[in-house]
Design a protein around this nucleic acid. Structure first.
Lengths: 181, 181
DNA sequence: TCGTATTTTCACAAAATACTGAAAATACGA
DNA sequence: TCGTATTTTCAGTATTTTGTGAAAATACGA
């Protein structure tokens, strides 16, 4: 091999590979701290930085994880809508590719967390409020007031997020940003 | 006991206690899904709906948890700034009370998560970008572009949250809300 | 239809995390 | 100073979560 003609080759490829690995690892740690399965976050990271779609086997090999693990977490990512499964004509294998546009990713995550976590929380709060609605004791009124405050806040937050996410494009937030202080 | 003069007594107290328990339990579950220790969230819930400050022993008894567990999680809550420890003159026991104002709670949580999770994530991304800054291959450029997009987005989000949280009062968001769609 | 490639499921194992109980340290009054 | 109340620490245990490997199911070509 002529080192002059391929200055990009070995060392640089290794450098890139190391950076990619670091990204995948760290993205896994970040996801983990936000309550997302570490492996799921790593697969997501891998698919984000891979231009082409990957098969389950490629994911397994790259992250050194088992088939079952890769499969479960790929399904979960598809369930969130962060990853699409694509089929190539004439091929039986299933390929996976991530949504790469950052704003869309954000919208998907916000929508899902709203649906899976914020809405249920609001329902629980409302239920608690109802359960003491007929009680007149000061303790009961105080409890109702506090849970009501939380419920109202979360409804408000839910509403803000709905609006932010509605347009599916990032222009609104930076624009609204100007008005904030 | 005269049932007429205390119509609020037994049954209603039980009803309130049940609602409080439900709230504590569910708040624990919610916190858990957001990556927060279940017990810590439950203690927080308990303190939020308790008008007076509680001792470690009272928390232990109410939630049926060990001293070590109660202690660790109370310290953690104090570390977040969500709970204050108060000392009553002439008493040796330490009492704990939660910040009850919802918007302040929100600000504290956002500030802490920004500091503990968003900033480190941004640093990792920036580090990844730097590591491939000198590489010219299309693969490297593509990787750099994708991580840059993520990094920029997170910086933007960090900035928005900073501004939202800066004032320590809730008037700004509802106001900005009008401009969103 | 059969044989093979691929996907899916699931019981169990491993790892990570949370909790306990009890001892050690500390604070304070007498 | 000693004795007691209170807080803190931490090694060990329990629980929960995550991952594995292998078998079962499915899809497809011949």
């Amino acid at each position: 091999m002529d080192k002059q003609s391929k200055p990009t080759s070995a060392a640089e490829a290794a450098q890139l590979a190391a950076a990619r690995d670091e990204f995948v690892t760290q993205w896994g740690a970040i996801g983990n701290s936000w309550g997302i399965n570490r492996t799921m976050a790593q697969i997501h990271a891998l698919l984000i930085i891979t231009p082409r779609a990957l098969t389950t086997d490629e994911v397994m090999e790259d992250l050194k994880i088992s088939r079952g693990n890769a499969h479960t977490n790929l399904r979960e990512l598809v369930g969130w809508g962060l990853v699409r499964s694509v089929v190539r004509k004439g091929e039986r294998k299933e390929y996976f590719e991530a949504e790469k546009e950052v704003w869309k990713m954000f919208c998907i995550i916000v929508r899902e967390r709203k649906r899976r976590e914020i809405r249920p929380a609001i329902n629980v709060l409302k239920d608690c409020i109802e359960r003491v609605d007929d009680l007149k004791s000061p303790e009961a009124r105080s409890f109702a007031a506090q849970t009501k405050a939380l419920s109202d806040f979360m409804e408000m937050a839910d509403g803000v997020l709905s609006k932010v996410v509605r347009s599916e494009q990032s222009t609104i937030v930076p624009w609204a940003l100007k008005f904030l202080k």
